[in-house]
Structure formats: structure tokens, C-alpha cells
Design a protein around this nucleic acid. Structure first.
Lengths: 145, 145
DNA sequence: AATATAATCAATAATGATTATCAATAAAGA
DNA sequence: TCTTTATTGATAATCATTATTGATTATATT
């Protein structure tokens, strides 16, 4: 009870809370997300899940990721050719994205909650999902110049 | 001299500085960007520029926008189906994007330069272009629930 | 001016991630 | 077990963006 749930359990609970059905495909995708390191793309997740569910289609992966995104359990990292997902840290945080090799890592940046509230008040928007991307050069690609 | 250049002049100067040629098509696109209000998409800019240059192709618009993006004169706002551009405020600032009607407005958020430098040091990345998007509901769409 | 070189343009086709459709299937609760 | 209805999966469609290529234009050099 006082022990924090595993990431897997958190995700499953979130799906239940929102009355989404727990299909085997979903459970497996959630498992993959929970154990994933880094920031896999939809295609990469699809490739992995096909080992257990050879008939799994792209559309299903996309739909499940959309669900999880909507209930704020995964962050989407919009790249031009290929969205990636962060399933281990649902809290808003920035990503550093290499414009040369596309490597993505988590960034640490204190996001002032008060500033966000002020922005909501001034704009009248209800903010649902922050997406903070810093495009630049990773250490390796920085040297290649 | 002490009077700040117009946005148009700034953009033209930036292109010159980087030794990009000033073709009539580019000058016109820059003009459209300088006078644009809001956050036009590549298609919208293309539609406008076709009035003066009926043969202008999409590719040329994209290439010119890419140039301007690289020299940090326009911010790209990556939406899934359709990138939009902010050509009037090249300084990093957030955008509020309605997930329902796609309306985009500028946000005001003080981005602590020190935090960014710290993030660069910790990660080893060289940050070139921040992109900060807050997805949510605009005032109109907020009510429709 | 004339020529050589390089940049840019425009038209077309190709790419490829994402989404729509819809019949078949299966989860969840009675 | 039965019923309801969300979900799945196969297929095809969409559509922004990019690649390609040959023609055109600007720039530099003589």
C-alpha cells in the first residue's frame, strides 16, 4: 500500500479507471512500454509486440498509444517522420533531440507551475499536455564539425 | 541606425549574412512572413505567394522556410498534419495549441536562460532550437463540454 | 560583354507515417 | 452463458513533406 506501484501497474490501473478494456494486446503493449528504456517509436513498439502477437497491426498500436497519451500516461515526442513516446515519465519534462542523428534523451528543467497557471489565465486556454523539445546537436554529432 | 529594423529588413539581412541569394520569390515570401499575423502553415503561405508567383511550387516554399528556420528567423510549430510557422517572433517562446480546433496563439513564459545552460552542460547537447508547445483547449472549445 | 560555375527554381513523382473503414472478434458485466 | 459494445486487424486511403532532375538564373572571372 505504501509501496509505490510499478510502472506497469500504474498504466494498467489508469486504463481501468477510464473503463478501457484490458485486451491481451494492450496488456502486452503496456508491459513493453513499462520496461522500455529510451523513447521508442510506434514502429519500434509494433515490431516488438509482433513477437507475441504476430497479427498486431499498426493501427492498433497507434490507437493504444493515443489512449495512453490522452490519459496523460505517455508523452508524445513529435518528430517530423516518426513520433516517439516516453512511457516511463508521464510528468511533463523536456526532451533533447539531435537534429543530426535523432537521438533523444530526457532533459531536466524545472517548469514553474505558477507560470503555467498564469499562462492559462491570460490565454483562457486549458492546458492538457505540455510538449517541450529542444532541438540541437548531441555530444557525438557536435564533434563532427 | 538607432531605429530598429523592420521585421522585413531583419529577415532580408539575415539571408544576406548567410550568403543566401535574394531571389524575387524569396523576397516575396519573406514579405509575406513579415506581415503575417498568427501562425500560417506552409500551404497557406504557398497559396498567398501564388498570387504573385503562380508557378511557385510547394517545394520552394518548404526549402525557404527551412533556411529561415535554420538561421533561427522563424520558429516551426510541428503539428501532426501540417507545420505552422511563427515568423514574427524568432525568440523562443511557447505556443498554445487547441487540440480541438487547432487554433494557435503565442504564450508568454519566461524561459530561464540559466536552466537551459545547465541542461546543455549536463547533457552535452548543443541546443539550437527550443520548441515549446502546450496542447490544450482554447476558450471556445473549452465551453463546448 | 562573354563564359563558367554554382545556386535556385518548378514539375513530377515518391515516400512513408498516420488514419479511416468495417467486418469479425472478444472483454466485461448481467 | 448471454448480450452489449469496445476492440482488433486487414486493407486502403490520405496527405504533408522530400527527392529528383532538368531548366533557369545569378554571380564571379576573364
Amino acid at each position: 500500500m505504501s509501496v509505490p506501484d510499478s510502472r506497469f501497474d500504474q498504466l494498467i490501473s489508469a486504463l481501468k479507471e477510464h473503463n478501457f478494456r484490458l485486451t491481451p494486446q494492450r496488456v502486452e503493449l503496456v508491459r513493453l512500454i513499462a520496461v522500455s528504456e529510451g523513447h521508442p517509436s510506434a514502429s519500434q513498439l509494433h515490431a516488438k509486440i509482433k513477437r507475441k502477437f504476430p497479427t498486431m497491426s499498426h493501427a492498433t498500436v497507434y490507437k493504444t498509444l493515443s489512449l495512453l497519451k490522452e490519459i496523460n500516461q505517455v508523452l508524445e515526442i513529435d518528430l517530423r517522420d516518426d513520433s516517439h513516446y516516453d512511457g516511463n515519465r508521464p510528468d511533463p519534462h523536456p526532451h533533447l533531440i539531435c537534429v543530426n542523428c535523432n537521438k533523444i534523451i530526457d532533459g531536466e528543467l524545472l517548469i514553474d507551475q505558477q507560470s503555467i497557471q498564469r499562462m492559462e489565465q491570460e490565454s483562457g486556454y486549458k492546458i492538457l499536455r505540455p510538449q517541450i523539445s529542444f532541438y540541437g546537436l548531441c555530444p557525438d554529432c557536435k564533434e563532427e564539425n
